[in-house]
């Protein structure tokens, strides 16, 4: 219970500080224009932004899920002994096959 209080306290304190300190003066149109070194944009910057490493993001979600499995393994590792090492070796081996495949298909860069 005190954990939630701590989190709520820090977040509330920071939000209050930020909200209080920042008062956005109403900007005139030329002041509000986006900075392009003196140039002008045609459209809003918000766009269907082509996030180039999109395949890496999808592979990352699957990889992240493995971490969730590994945390409990780490807690009981010493007590379980070599069996845990073997099992985690197999688990990581399976997942490094996915890593190798991704690397060979060239997804770990700007597509």
């Amino acid at each position: 219970m005190d954990a939630l209080l701590i989190i709520a306290a820090w977040t509330g304190l920071a939000a209050l500080a930020a909200w209080g300190m920042q008062r956005q003066a109403g900007a005139t149109a030329p002041l509000a224009a986006p900075f392009l070194g003196g140039g002008t944009p045609d459209t809003h910057a918000w766009q269907r932004y082509h996030f180039r490493p999109y395949t890496m993001a999808l592979v990352f979600i699957a990889f992240e899920m493995e971490m969730m499995f590994m945390y409990p393994w780490a807690v009981v590792f010493v007590r379980e002994g070599a069996k845990a090492l073997a099992e985690m070796g197999m688990f990581l081996g399976i997942l490094s096959v996915g890593l190798l495949y991704g690397w060979r298909e060239g997804i770990f860069r700007w597509q």
Partner: peptide, 12 residues
């Protein structure tokens, strides 16, 4: 306005 606040809160 609140992005710096979240950044500060997460550090805390």
């Amino acid at each position: 306005l609140l992005a710096p606040a979240w950044y500060l809160a997460l550090a805390a």
